[in-house]
């Protein structure tokens, strides 16, 4: 199916043939699952799992090598006072900062992710995007977060988006490819479902909600739709694809809601840092504060954790 579907007409038939999303239903289901109460030992496990799933991210124009080094050190030992605290999944930076993060994280199991392809807008010629990707991989990134061309997608030029993802996937080589759909700019839940399928058919290893650079970032309903998409895609094609909500997830409570969503939608197979990630920066400190609360029995304060 993936090999033959590359013309816009074929893709359109296929994507528009997907069942429509029940907007009210998906929002109600996400809200209902968000009310689950996770306590004590289950909460402790959820917090540690969430820490292991964090892609610790800094994507600012003001990023300096010093900041990225500090962030990488934090990724290895999020809570220096507690050696039992697990490392995060990856550090996510701009390509120019990859050479700074790589030596700190080498051999630790913490991945180096780099955004590429004219992040965050994706509005650049294809050869620029491919060069961007190759450079990031050559500098040592083993995960690439690409953005799709929302303009082309919304204009209905599905083949162009598809071919771009295929080309970037090829440029990635061995590096994992995460495809950012930027769901806040797609307008409808139907488009989220279509973009998810388009990215997966084109070879994405992960589908990611957002760049974090537009006002509407990751939400529970959007993540629910993407989880359903990866579940259905695996049932149909036998290939498992990961999901990464990013942007706007700041509290432990939020993170646990996502874990409940995974458990109830796709099950244990995705409850693993290899298949689910949180793109976040401030989330980690809140997770650490909650973790400290559970171990010490009293409330923790932000003064006791690093600023990043």
């Amino acid at each position: 199916m993936t090999a033959t579907a590359t013309s816009t007409a074929n893709l359109r038939a296929l994507l528009h043939g997907l069942p429509g999303v029940d907007k009210v239903g998906v929002e109600a289901r996400a809200a209902a699952l968000g009310t689950r109460s996770v306590k004590t030992t289950a909460k402790a496990k959820a917090i540690d799992l969430a820490i292991r799933m964090v892609d610790l991210t800094t994507l600012e124009g003001a990023d300096t090598p010093g900041k990225v080094r500090a962030l990488s050190a934090k990724a290895l030992h999020p809570d220096p006072a507690d050696p039992s605290c697990p490392s995060v999944a990856a550090v996510c930076v701009y390509p120019s900062m990859v050479p700074v993060a790589v030596p700190v994280l080498a051999g630790s199991g913490v991945h180096v992710a780099s955004v590429a392809t004219a992040f965050p807008s994706g509005q650049a010629p294809l050869d620029v995007k491919l060069a961007d990707t190759r450079d990031a991989v050559a500098l040592g990134a083993d995960e690439i977060d690409m953005v799709i061309s929302r303009g082309s997608f919304l204009a209905g030029d599905y083949a162009k988006v598809f071919d771009e993802i295929v080309a970037v996937k090829e440029a990635c080589g061995d590096a994992h490819l995460k495809v950012i759909l930027e769901t806040g700019e797609l307008g409808t839940y139907d488009n989220v479902r279509r973009a998810s399928w388009l990215a997966m058919m084109a070879g994405a290893d992960f589908i990611k909600t957002s760049t974090g650079k537009v006002p509407v970032a990751a939400t529970l309903p959007v993540t629910l739709i993407m989880l359903e998409a990866v579940r259905d895609f695996r049932a149909q094609n036998g290939r498992q694809v990961g999901v990464k909500p990013a942007g706007g997830i700041r509290t432990t409570k939020d993170a646990i809601k996502y874990l409940v969503l995974i458990n109830e939608t796709v099950g244990d197979d995705w409850l693993d840092p290899d298949w689910f990630r949180f793109g976040a920066s401030s989330l980690l400190n809140d997770l650490l504060m909650q973790r400290t609360k559970l171990t010490t029995g009293h409330y923790a304060g932000p003064d006791y954790f690093t600023l990043d």
């Binding site: 029995g297 009293h298 409330y299 923790a300 304060g301 932000p302 003064d303 006791y304």
Partner: peptide, 9 residues
Amino acid sequence: PWLASHDDV
């Protein structure tokens, strides 16, 4: 007691 032990008070 929760305020007394709170790190952020």
